[in-house]
Design a protein around this nucleic acid. Structure first.
Lengths: 146, 146
DNA sequence: TTCAGTGCAAAAGATTTGCAACCTA
DNA sequence: TAGGTTGCAAATCTTTTGCACTGAA
């Protein structure tokens, strides 16, 4: 999803409409460059489309997800957030202290490409999150157990 | 996390207590063999620990997550669910029709092992979910766009 | 005995729904 | 125009919190 025209055509080809609300939400997610909660999306969308409601935000987020424009992700607080699908990056979150670190996407891309050919799926792998233990918490845990 | 004794020792070593509630929730997640929503966990836990409350379920799920016993996952309806961490399997979910398919874990394990040595994290990769388009929905979309 | 953990109950938050009006294609 | 979308408002569902009491170690 690289530009408005592209989204517009994608939607029209499926019989959907490009409304100001949909445009605003897609645009703001792209511009923010990070994942946003529905409440954050609402807050920002409200600035360009003053009459927008939370119900519309939820419906639009569902709609954009089903059409592959955005994707749902669990954030560091285990809440559902959304981000634009072309925003390629992956990260690790520490289950204990919630620290985050970005990771090199290449090794995963390779594994994912293999899965695509095995399953026939087109995988939306713009963002993958792993949970685990960061080095500090891992060390702490090991010391406690010894 | 393979048996009660193991969990018990893990908790004790960190100054935590093994309560009937924690035991029941861990046990039921292990026995179910799949991911459960907090409401489902509550419903099931209520049978072995009649007095348990939803607040305790939420607190226990947080607690078990922080200690690596369970992990949070987004289910096919984009709701937060939990599953036991030793339950190794990965799957794909179609964003459009929500079909699910299990995938071979091996290629991912390799990529993950690489990430662990790069980052120093211990990754809890028992369950990884990708969103994407299943073959049928992919085909349908391609036909619409041509 | 101690203090981590629980139940209770209420508050706060998040998400969904029906329906009439609206506006994109 | 037609029918996909939205706003509104209420209902529903989910998650969090403070506090006193309980029970595991």
């Amino acid at each position: 999803m690289s530009c408005d025209t592209e989204l517009s055509e994608l939607l029209r080809s499926r019989g959907f409409r490009l409304t100001p609300q949909r445009h605003a939400i897609m645009h703001l997610l792209k511009a923010s460059g990070k994942h946003l909660s529905p409440a954050e999306v609402y807050e920002q969308a409200h600035q360009s489309v003053p009459g927008i409601t939370e119900a519309t935000v939820y419906r639009t987020l569902d709609f954009l997800t089903e059409n592959g424009v955005v994707q749902p992700v669990l954030n560091e607080n285990r809440h559902l957030v959304y981000e634009i699908s072309d925003h390629h990056h992956h990260h690790l979150i520490c289950s204990t202290c919630r620290a985050q670190v970005d990771i090199d996407p290449k090794p995963l891309q390779k594994a994912i490409a293999g899965l695509e050919s095995q399953t026939g799926f087109r995988i939306n792998a713009g963002h993958i999150t792993f949970f685990g233990l960061c080095p500090a918490c891992k060390k702490e845990q090991e010391e406690l157990q010894s």
